[in-house]
C-alpha cells in the first residue's frame, strides 16, 4: 500500500499529495505523513516544486476537515440534541459541550498536527457540537499549516532519513494523542461529579 502510493508521488506530484491529505482527514487509512515526507525529500532533490506540494497538501487537508465538520453538522447535531435530552447521557453531553466551548479552538489546532491521529474525529465532533464554523476554520487552517510545514519541511531537511522520521513522528504523535485522551478521561474521573 505505502509502496504503491509512494510510486505515484514523483510521477503525479502535487495532486497525489493533496488527495492523500484529503483522504487522511476523513480518517481513511492512507499514508499521509510518509507521502508528505517523500514529497518534501523529492523537492529537496529538485524533482518537485516545494511551494506547489505544500499548497496542494494544505488544500487537501482543509477540504477534508471541512467535509468532516459538515458531516458532523448534518448527521451529528440531531444525535447530540437527542442524547442531551436523555437522562442517562444528559450530563455527559453537557460536559462535552462545555469542554468544546472552552477548549474547542485549541483542541482543533493541536489535533491537526501534535495530536494528528485525533484530527478526523475532532472534525466530526466539532461539527456536531456548538463550536462555530469560523472558530473551527480559523484554528483548523492554522493547525494544518503547521502539520504541512512540519512534514514537508522534515522531508526536505532529513531527505536521507524519511523512513526514520516517519516511524518516529508517527508513533510519537500516536503516544501523545492517546495520552491526551487518557488525560481528559482521567481528569473527568478524578474531578467528576460526586452525585
Amino acid at each position: 500500500m505505502i509502496e504503491a502510493v509512494l510510486e505515484l508521488v514523483p510521477v503525479y506530484g502535487a495532486p497525489v499529495v493533496g488527495l492523500i491529505t484529503f483522504l487522511s482527514c476523513l480518517a481513511l487509512p492512507v499514508p499521509a505523513s510518509i507521502v508528505m515526507l517523500a514529497a518534501g525529500a523529492l523537492s529537496a532533490a529538485g524533482d518537485l516544486p516545494v511551494g506547489l506540494i505544500s499548497a496542494s497538501a494544505l488544500a487537501g487537508a482543509i477540504s477534508g476537515d471541512q467535509l468532516g465538520f459538515l458531516a458532523g453538522r448534518l448527521a451529528g447535531r440531531e444525535l447530540v440534541r437527542r442524547l442531551g435530552r436523555r437522562p442517562a447521557s444528559r450530563h455527559a453531553i453537557r460536559d462535552a459541550n462545555a469542554f468544546m466551548t472552552r477548549y474547542g479552538g485549541h483542541g482543533v489546532f493541536l489535533s491537526r498536527w501534535l495530536l494528528s491521529p485525533l484530527g478526523p474525529y475532532v472534525n466530526v465532533a466539532a461539527g456536531a457540537m456548538d463550536i462555530g464554523w469560523t472558530r473551527f476554520t480559523f484554528w483548523g487552517v492554522l493547525g494544518e499549516c503547521v502539520w504541512v510545514a512540519v512534514y514537508v519541511g522534515s522531508g526536505a531537511l532529513f531527505a536521507d532519513h524519511i523512513s526514520a522520521v516517519a516511524d518516529i513522528l508517527g508513533n510519537a504523535t500516536g503516544a501523545l494523542a492517546a495520552a491526551a485522551v487518557a488525560g481528559v478521561l482521567g481528569l473527568h474521573l478524578l474531578r467528576g461529579r460526586a452525585q
Binding site: 508513533n171 510519537a172 500516536g174 503516544a175 501523545l176 492517546a178 495520552a179 485522551v181 487518557a182 478521561l185 482521567g186
Partner: peptide
C-alpha cells in the same frame, strides 16, 4: 487510552 499511550511510547 493509557495502555495505547504506553504502547506507542
Amino acid at each position: 487510552a493509557l495502555g495505547a499511550a504506553l504502547f506507542f511510547l
